[in-house]
Each structure stands twice: as C-alpha cells, then as structure tokens.
Design a protein around this nucleic acid. Sequence first.
DNA 1: CTCGTTGCTACATAAATAGTAGCGGTGCGT
DNA 2: ACGCACCGCTACTATTTATGTAGCAACGAG
Lengths: 114, 114
Amino acid sequence: MVKENPPVKIPRIGQSVQGSQTGQPIMVLFDLIGRRWSMGILWNLSSQNRTFRDLQTRCGSASPTVLNTRLKELRAVGLVEKTDTGYGLTGSGRELFEVLEPLGDWAMEWAKDL
Amino acid sequence: MVKENPPVKIPRIGQSVQGSQTGQPIMVLFDLIGRRWSMGILWNLSSQNRTFRDLQTRCGSASPTVLNTRLKELRAVGLVEKTDTGYGLTGSGRELFEVLEPLGDWAMEWAKDL
DNA sequence: CTCGTTGCTACATAAATAGTAGCGGTGCGT
DNA sequence: ACGCACCGCTACTATTTATGTAGCAACGAG
C-alpha cells in the first residue's frame, strides 16, 4: 500500500527570486531542481521505478535524510510519485526529464576535456 | 585588465558519485551545476555579459560569498570567463546553455499548475 | 521464530550559504 | 586635489542544509 502525501513545506521556494523580473518560473525551477541530488533522482528514476535504498546507492550514497527530503519536495510539486514498485516519475516528471535528457550527451562530450 | 585564474579546488567534485556506474559524467555535471545559483548564473549570462553586482541582484540577491565561489568554480571548468565587460559564457558555456534553454519554456508551462 | 531487506526517523557533526560590513580600485564632477 | 559613487571582492558571524551513523517498525522468506 502506498501512503498519501501530507502537506510538505518546501523551504524558501519562490522567495529567493523576489528581485529578479527575468524569467521567474525558470528561477523557481532552478531553485527546486538545483538542490543536491534533485536532478540525480530524476535521472535515476527515468528508466524505471526504484526503491528508496536503490536510489540511495545510485546517488553516490546520499544520506537517507536528504534523499527523503528531496523525494518529499519532488512529490510535493508533482514530479515524482510513490508507487507499488517504489518511486517513479509522474507525467510532468517525465516531461521534465525529456527536456533534461540532452544534458547526458552533452556531459559525455564535455567530460573529455576536464 | 582581466586577472588570470589561479588553481581553484572544487569541493567534492566527482567524489560524490563513486558508487554509481550509470552515466558518471552526468552526475558530475549535476553535482557542479546543481549547486545554488549555478544554473541561474549561466542563465543570466546567456543574453549578455554581466558585472559581478549585476549578477548578484539578478540572482535574487545571492550573497557575494557564494556568487564568487560559483563564479570561480564555473571558471575553473571553463564554462564562464572574465572579460573586459564583466563575466561571460565561454564556448562550452554557451553550448551548455543551449542544451539548458528548453527548460525555460517548460518551466513556463509547469508554473501554471503550481 | 529468525534472518535479511526495506523505508524511513533521530541525532550529532560538518559543510554550504546567508547576511552584513568594509577594503582598495576606478572614474567623474568640482 | 577632493569627495562621491560605483565596482569586484574578502572577512566574519549566524543560519540553513547536508553528511554519517545508528536504529526502529514492517514485511517476506524460510
């Protein structure tokens, strides 16, 4: 059985960008997915659903504390969901991943020159 | 005149991903640009070169401490450079931005439903 | 029942970031 | 020469966030 999500407070979301007019949504997104392990989580969930501990080892042994925090946040904004087979991407989560995907190829090229 | 970059140590880069086989370069990249304000900096430098203080206000008044740290890091990996007209993207920096750019449009759509 | 695994929480420590103040440099008007 | 306003940035402390380890309750298999 899958537990339902009680309200989750995401610290300082949206507040960090008060001053800037330029592209507010993107800055909010950056603030969200620019936290430690956020993108790694999305990336690792893209191919298949994963259990908590599976995710943990795949994310360079991120501490369970952060991992759980990130998962709560990502679920709060509807990018990740809890399923019977572990955590997985939602519809918009998958959308976001598709936008993010080309980064993989670029990173491969980029890694060649330090 | 533009000062040259002395060697910069980027904390824990690459080390956080020891355990994961899957796509190491992308995880290194995530670890780098997934730090606070990194992507915001790249984003704000994409349209034009900017001064330190200009960047600072555009990044939700990020503290000069972090901002300078991020700039050092991004320069160390050759994504950002110091020019006569302030900070700007290098060739690969611009490449990365182009990969990152679609996020802007997606974020606009995404922002509509919380 | 035991054994192993899973999803977490608790807690203390370490690291990253915020938030302010202020220094030296540069240019500009007087 | 002077003040004045900006600039890039460093120093320092306070707060937030992440790490690292231990461990608990729940489950399934044997």
